[in-house]
């Protein structure tokens, strides 16, 4: 499984236009919707919000992975967003968040969903990957950085 295969061009937002948590999630969800993978946008948003209410998906080192498992999506759908200035996403280390991976998956693909989350986490352990992603200024650049990291 490759992120570069799962990720569609339409679902990459560089730079993100919003500056608060719920608006960022909506902006990324809107990007995923453009891929045609969302069956029910409202239900998908509700699932993401409910998950966020359990605890922020803002992690450490500028990374956030808003995610939810919901049958409002067909299979696995993903969006990537870059916020060069950094956003307060209630991250675990209290630092601004620059890099967002939004992930939605239907209940039938739980195993793959868990694998993709682990894959995102592993790629982000590479400081070079995080830095390049945070500095990316175009969709093509994001695609190339992910593709190279997966080589």
């Amino acid at each position: 499984m490759r992120l570069s295969t799962l990720l569609k061009r339409e679902a990459i937002v560089v730079p993100l236009q919003n500056f608060d948590k719920s608006a960022i999630i909506e902006e990324l969800l809107e990007a995923v919707s453009r891929t045609g993978q969302i069956i029910d946008r409202e239900k998908a948003l509700q699932a993401l919000t409910e998950r966020e209410n359990l605890g922020s998906t803002g992690l450490e080192k500028g990374l956030a992975i808003p995610h939810a498992r919901t049958n409002a999506v067909d299979g696995i759908a993903m969006a990537v967003g870059i916020a060069p200035e950094g956003i307060d996403f209630q991250s675990a280390d209290g630092e601004p968040t620059h890099l967002f991976f939004l992930l939605l998956a239907s209940e039938a693909v739980t195993s793959n969903y868990v694998q993709v989350l682990a894959l995102i986490a592993r790629l982000n352990l590479q400081s070079g990957f995080r830095r390049k992603m945070q500095e990316a200024t175009s969709v093509d650049e994001v695609i190339e950085i992910i593709r190279q990291a997966e080589e």
Binding site: L54, T57, L59, I65, H67, V114, L117, A118, A121
Partner: peptide, 13 residues
């Protein structure tokens, strides 16, 4: 093991 790792990394609650 992987589920526990994701929970420790705070990706999962």
């Amino acid at each position: 093991d992987l589920l526990k790792q994701l929970e420790r990394a705070r990706i999962f609650v």
